[in-house]
Design a protein around this nucleic acid. Sequence first.
DNA 1: GTCGGTGCAAATGCTTTGCATTGAT
DNA 2: ATCAATGCAAAGCATTTGCACCGAC
Lengths: 155, 155
Amino acid sequence: MALQPTQPVSGDDEFGIIEPLCAVFRRSLKDAGLKYTPERAQILDTIIAFDALFEADQLLDELKTKGFRVSKATVYRTLKLLEDAGIIQRVLFDRDQSHYQLAYGNAGNTLLVRVDTGEVETLELPELVAIRDKICEARGLKPEGHRLQIFATGG
Amino acid sequence: MALQPTQPVSGDDEFGIIEPLCAVFRRSLKDAGLKYTPERAQILDTIIAFDALFEADQLLDELKTKGFRVSKATVYRTLKLLEDAGIIQRVLFDRDQSHYQLAYGNAGNTLLVRVDTGEVETLELPELVAIRDKICEARGLKPEGHRLQIFATGG
DNA sequence: GTCGGTGCAAATGCTTTGCATTGAT
DNA sequence: ATCAATGCAAAGCATTTGCACCGAC
């Protein structure tokens, strides 16, 4: 169970970015023989409303604030389903807790973390993909994904 | 306590790579008013004997195998000290467990992870440092470190 | 005799799971 | 009826901490 890369999203996104995520989720659930329940809808909506990274606990709080009553267990179970669907990805830079964010395409693999303020910016870094692919090719490997975190201070 | 970058090693390494680590550790301990105990020496030796990444538990096993009797608590406490000294660094790509490795200079920020076999290769990627510095500079930030994991399969 | 170090066991904190109940087809 | 979903509480697991004892200067 260790060493799993973040699941890359399937690509294209021919519809735009945010709106069809619920459709993507529905399809993914249906394909797995699972249901699109109110709790799962509320969780996805709440995640979309976030503008940045979040933790399971924040999500739980936000759900409560919105008046949704969803249990912690369901939150964790749904996070896993959303990850399977490629809708969110885990972005780990802290051993104590998982941090998640929406996965638009392959975005979000690169994070700029302000260690002084805790701010996090998501970067697009096409050069990095090129470097990655070159490295893999040189070894006869197929790239499956990557994750970069840059830490910085000051400003 | 979150969002801490891996502590970069102080540089230079004018002595070679492995041998003086114990001296580095000693100095770091002395500077902090701490002692270089047999347990700490055994832990460092055992880490040096590893050729790759390791987890706290593996380390504990290996210590047992070598006939050293060191408690789990001491292992964790010493890992933290070694990290402070810049001798090892945490390399996290799994939320369940911390993975550590020796930090030679700034090496080890970049890992190539075979997701099918679990093999891990440490890469040097100077281009990445350049990219990182450029990004930080463009925002008036000072780079403190970075971490890249590349996931790949096949071969 | 003062400090730090160690080991043990208990505590922590995030995440997962077992189980009884509920709801949809 | 069946099959999955939910909530709760309990369990898991890596890591940390409190505390009593030990050893070095």
